[in-house]
């Protein structure tokens, strides 16, 4: 499967997991974990930066800065698209920047 198709699949899996949220559904969670393991096998690393601190040095994120953000202490408040890296023998390379909304934690 071409890398482009895997990227789209990775985004869909991320969205699915996000929708599942805190719903306790171990059966569904297990399937989602298997899908992520498959991504791993395909050489795609999926990272969810939710809640992580944000600095502008993070070129793996495309940030929309909410204007309510005060000085200092920016965090990722919402993730629209996850960060994807391609795993190769030579190392990792960024495939897709995470699209996020950052601001101060209320």
């Amino acid at each position: 499967m071409s890398q482009q198709l895997w990227i789209r699949m990775a985004n869909l899996i991320f969205e699915l997991e996000k929708k599942l949220g805190d719903n306790d559904s171990p059966g569904v969670k297990r399937n989602i974990q298997r899908m992520k393991d498959l991504l791993d096998e395909a050489g795609i690393l999926l990272m969810n930066p939710m809640g992580e601190p944000y600095q502008e040095t993070r070129t793996d994120l495309e940030a929309n800065i909410a204007s309510t953000a005060a000085r200092g202490g920016l965090f990722v408040l919402d993730v629209i698209k996850p960060v994807l890296y391609a795993q190769q023998e030579q190392g990792r390379a960024l495939l897709q920047k995470g699209v996020v909304i950052v601001g101060t934690k209320s």
């Binding site: 040095t57 993070r58 070129t59 890296y85 190392g91 990792r92 960024l94």
Partner: peptide, 26 residues
């Protein structure tokens, strides 16, 4: 090298201090 971190262009003095973020398990 994977494109996930860039300190940006910063003024150079006799000392450099940076916190470098790391990708897990690699």
């Amino acid at each position: 090298s994977d494109g996930g971190f860039d300190s940006g262009s910063k003024p150079l003095s006799a000392r450099i201090n940076e916190m470098l973020p790391l990708l897990p398990n690699t």
